[in-house]
Design a protein around this nucleic acid. Structure first.
Length: 808
DNA sequence: CCCCTGTTATTTTTT
DNA sequence: ATAACAGGGG
């Protein structure tokens, strides 16, 4: 009992002791939020609240597990429901699915399943994909689902052209899902939200059952989630939410920041607790984070403070390119491990995109540094695992058409695309599942006897498999592998690809099944296993127990902490991402993303960027992230490696400026920071500032677009930048000098799209010279139709290798 | 029908 | 750089 209150601050205690009524906990990073939540649950249990009256909803399984283990430590063995929103809904749907047309053994489509289903729906809806890609349509439908918009509601209301297309596909997609007795991720929430809304008695029942609801990371809730928790907190308004508006980074997925900002309006009687004391980071780190996030408009001001010792200054490091960045960081980490007694697991490297981990991987491997990538190729996404899972799905739910299509010809047994197409058409026509259609293969019109018998063969394998459906998972899977000769198939088809060992993955899969059997000796049902698999995310695979450096995206980093953190690629178009900076909202979310990354650091933090970075093959000059100008540069130690001059590279001076348009630091004593072995011999600090870029309030809008500048460059080749020259317009100068000029430019990828006009002569590696006869579309879709000697061809200008031919 | 090859399109974040 | 795709030969 005393353990519950031990070492709590006043604010924390206030939250912990709150039992009835709405509660808002605004928790800054590292403020002991989980501690408060778990202690509060323990406190409630100790004060008469029955465990089954509590539901604690999280976004990730990892968070749920963390909560579970810490509650267990305080109040062992209490059956409090803890898990993700999606799992919560999935389990309700097992019970109430009948009310929305699903039977108990419904399947959850993962992303790739849903993608397949979407393509089929698009085809069935007879919608052309010329104006909207399947992905765009899927995204539009997903957005609608997150906002609780049903197919019927979309009719007539659709405004944008994209939505009009989506509105046509949406009902077909939903119908096909229903026929397949399946849901996608969004449906889990949507179905439950609708069910509760349309069935007051169910709502009341659940409201009464879950008398106390806790929501973690409330800033990440979307409308569907919001509707669910609100609806279940009417009769018993004991809704406790924790969150931090500054850490909302899932707006792109439908999360609505207003849910937390307006919580106090939703529940006027709310008790609000602010947790502002930080237990995680040094003041240095915290100051940088705080300065950055102050630039956001949409937030609730919190005053972060800490009692922690000052620690090392935050480091901003500038590298020449992505390889040097990776090598430099790997060297530093290796050095810190060998000289300072730090462990690999003390380090984490964050980046905006998964693709950026590649160079780090190489660097780590070369130094034999153990690492783990949180979002590499996910285990359950591997071909061999998906194959086996699809069989299991089909056993569990014969209507699972996506699974059927995946496995009907695995291993290859003579059922080709044409055959599948005919089965699908037959199934669509009679509105039956494909497996059902396959049973009548011989009577399907236009299906060759040979094909029909191949299909029949599959059906009989399937039927034999189903007999084992009630056996243990282990038996079922082993039987499956044996029956279809999967091992032989793998050996034959997976022609020795380096470092992939499919059979080892299969073994691991069997191990996972054995483990599931062991943990669910009684209720080890197939659908429970499949649900489990469907709802585990990649980030949940993060293994904290092994001693490895962790590589992951900034998104994946939320909720974690590490002694030493590196954030790479703090560059414009990366953070903020080029596709997330057009609106103020997106821009602020990107700022929050960086904030989240920064606040993961306990002791040391290094932000880094490159002067140039390879983007899909070609190397491009880099613009520093605008967020760097918002940091307290006087608190930051800036390190820039000396430029290695390639005497033979005449272009170098033009391409890569010596001066960087970040303010110089007054602190230029050159002493090594404690952050590993940075700034060693051979890379003496090379600090040259060109002054601040001035008042940066309009930084983004004032930024010249690449295109403007290129046009200019084409007319006036940039002179070589001398090391001492300081341009009055650093921004522009930098971009200019980063570009190749003259003929180089024309042959490179930097030709302005505007140069391609009707009548212009171009050269193509394959077709020779030709004349542009038409130009259509905009942005990346801008397309030129070219008349060559060998006929007409169309090219996406952003991708095609079309050279301009110098006009005579 | 299967497999290989060359071609083309595609790049954010994920429950 | 990589994945998905289309088309042709076996």
């Amino acid at each position: 009992m005393d353990a519950i209150f031990q070492d709590l601050t006043d604010a924390q205690r206030e939250a912990v002791t709150h039992v009835d009524g709405p509660l808002l906990i605004l928790a800054g990073p590292g403020s002991g939020k989980t501690r408060v939540v778990t202690h509060r649950i323990a406190h409630m249990l100790a004060n008469g609240v029955r465990p089954w009256q509590i539901a604690a909803l999280t976004f990730t399984n990892k968070a749920a597990e963390e909560m579970r283990s810490r509650v267990d430590a305080l109040a062992p063995g209490q059956p409090v429901w803890m898990g993700t929103f999606h799992r919560f809904c999935a389990q309700l749907l097992r019970r109430y699915g009948g009310m929305v047309g699903l039977s108990e053994n419904y399947s959850i489509y993962d992303m790739s399943d849903a993608k397949q289903a979407m393509k089929r729906a698009i085809a069935a809806a007879d919608v052309s994909t010329t104006h909207a890609s399947p992905e765009q349509i899927a995204a539009a439908i997903s957005r609608s689902k997150n906002r609780l918009i049903t197919p019927e509601m979309m009719e007539g209301h659709s405004l944008t052209p994209g939505d009009t297309i989506a509105a046509k596909v949406y009902p077909v997609y939903q119908q096909q899902l229903l026929t397949a007795n399946a849901v996608d991720f969004d449906d889990l929430l949507l179905h439950i939200a609708r069910l509760i809304r349309e069935n007051p008695e169910v709502r009341a029942e659940l409201d009464a059952k879950f008398k106390y609801i806790l929501v973690d990371e409330y800033q990440d809730t979307n409308l569907a989630q919001y509707a669910i928790v609100r609806a279940l907190s009417i009769d018993n308004p004991n809704l406790a939410v924790t969150g931090d508006p500054d850490q909302s980074i899932y707006g792109w997925r439908g999360a609505d920041l207003n849910n937390i900002l307006d919580f106090e309006k939703d529940y006027p009687s709310v008790k609000t607790v602010r947790l502002e004391k930080n237990y995680r980071s040094t003041p240095n780190v915290l100051r940088v984070a705080d300065q950055l996030i102050r630039h956001n408009q949409k937030r609730k001001q919190k005053d972060l403070f800490t009692d922690n010792p000052e620690g090392d200054p935050v480091v901003l490091r500038i590298f020449e390119d992505g390889y040097k960045e990776a090598d430099g960081i790997a060297d530093e980490i290796a050095a810190a491990i060998s000289t300072e007694g730090l462990k690999p697991s003390d380090f984490a490297v964050f980046c905006r995109m998964n693709a950026l981990t590649r160079s780090l991987e190489h660097a780590f491997r070369a130094r034999a540094l153990p690492y783990q990538i949180v979002n590499g190729v996910e285990f359950y996404q591997r071909r061999e695992i998906k194959d086996l899972l699809a069989y299991l799905h089909l056993v569990n739910n014969p209507n699972h058409d996506v699974a059927f299509q995946r496995v009907v010809n695995v291993p290859t047994r003579g059922v080709g695309a044409k055959t599948i197409e005919k089965i699908r058409a037959h199934a669509d026509y009679h509105r039956i599942p494909m497996l059902e259609a396959a049973r009548h293969a011989s009577s399907i019109e236009g299906l060759a006897k040979r094909s029909a018998s191949a299909v029949t063969k599959f059906v009989s394998i399937y039927d034999r498999l189903c007999i084992k459906a009630t056996a243990t998972l282990e038996d079922l899977i082993r039987y499956l592998i044996e029956e279809i000769g999967y091992e032989a198939y793998l050996e034959k088809s997976m022609v020795e690809q380096q470092d992939s060992n499919p059979m080892a993955n299969v073994d691991e899969f069997v191990t996972a099944a054995v483990e599931f059997d062991r943990r669910h000796p009684e209720d080890g049902s197939l659908d429970a296993f499949l649900e489990q698999v469907a709802l585990v995310a990649d980030t949940d695979a993060l293994d904290g127990s092994t001693d490895r450096v962790t590589l992951m995206t900034l998104h994946a980093a939320k909720g974690l902490e590490f002694p030493c953190v590196y954030i790479i690629g703090v560059e414009d178009d990366l953070i903020p991402h080029s596709r997330s900076k057009s609106t103020e909202q997106e821009f602020e979310e990107e700022r929050r993303l960086l904030f989240v990354g920064i606040t993961r650091a306990e002791q040391r933090l290094q932000l880094s960027l490159c002067k140039r970075r390879a983007v899909r093959g070609d190397i491009r000059p880099v613009i520093p992230s605008p967020f760097l100008n918002e940091l307290p540069l006087e608190d930051i130690k800036r390190i820039e490696s000396a430029v290695e001059r390639n005497w033979f590279d005449e272009e170098f001076d033009q391409s890569y400026p010596d001066s960087w348009d970040l303010p110089d630091l007054s602190d230029s004593d050159g002493a090594d920071s404690d952050l590993g072995d940075i700034d060693q011999a051979g890379s003496a600090a090379h600090r040259k500032g060109s002054g601040s870029i001035g008042d940066d309030t309009d930084f983004v809008s004032e930024m010249p677009t690449l295109m403007n500048v290129v046009d200019e460059a084409a007319q006036v080749p940039a002179p070589p930048t001398s090391a001492s020259s300081v341009s009055s317009k650093p921004k522009k100068k930098m971009i200019l000098s980063g570009l190749k000029t003259g003929a180089d430019m024309l042959s490179g990828g930097a030709t302005p799209l505007t140069a391609y006009r009707e009548g212009v002569q171009v050269r193509h590696g394959e077709h020779g010279e030709g004349t542009i006869i038409a130009v259509t579309g905009r942005g990346p879709k801008r397309t030129a139709k070219v008349q060559f000697d060998d006929g007409e061809h169309s090219f996406r200008l952003a991708y095609a290798k079309l050279e301009l031919v110098d006009s005579p």
